[in-house]
Amino acid sequence: MKSLVVSDKAIHSFKRDWDLESGQVRIYGKYAGGAPDAFTVGLNAHAIPIDPVWEHSIAGIRFFVERTDAWILENALLQIDCNEDGITLHKTAQ
C-alpha cells in the first residue's frame, strides 16, 4: 500500500460505533463478485495480526495488512471515511 488516509469522522466512528478506543483493524481483499473488478477491500475490527506486511497507527487504532492480502492494495491509496451509512472505503491506484 502506498498510503492510507483515515478521516476524523471515520476515527470517531471506529471509536464510537465499532468500540475501538484502541485496537486493531485488518485491511484485506475480499471477493465482491460480478463486477469488472470482482475484488474489493474489507475491514475486520479486533483482528489479530499473524504475518503483517504493513502497519500504521492513527489515533490509537492500529491498521494492518497481512502478507496474503498485500495484492489488493499494491501501489494504491486507500481512503477511509464515514457518512450517514457508516464507514466508506475508496481505493485509487497511484
Rank of each mutant, 00 (worst) to 15 (best):
L4S: 08
S7A: 08
D8Y: 08
A10T: 07
A10E: 03
I11N: 07
I11W: 03
H12I: 05
H12R: 13
D17E: 12
D19W: 04
L20V: 13
S22K: 15
Q24I: 04
V25Q: 01
R26E: 13
Y28F: 15
G29V: 02
Y31T: 07
Y31W: 11
G33A: 14
G34C: 09
F39W: 14
F39Y: 15
F39N: 05
T40W: 04
T40I: 04
T40S: 15
V41F: 04
G42S: 10
L43D: 03
A45Y: 01
I48Q: 12
P49Y: 07
V53G: 00
E55D: 09
H56T: 04
I58Y: 07
A59V: 07
I61K: 01
I61Y: 01
F63W: 08
F64N: 00
V65T: 01
T68R: 10
W71A: 08
I72H: 03
L73P: 02
L73N: 01
L77W: 01
L78W: 00
L78G: 00
Q79E: 15
I80L: 08
N83Q: 09
E84G: 05
E84F: 06
D85G: 09
I87M: 09
I87F: 11
I87C: 08
L89Q: 06
K91N: 03
Q94E: 12
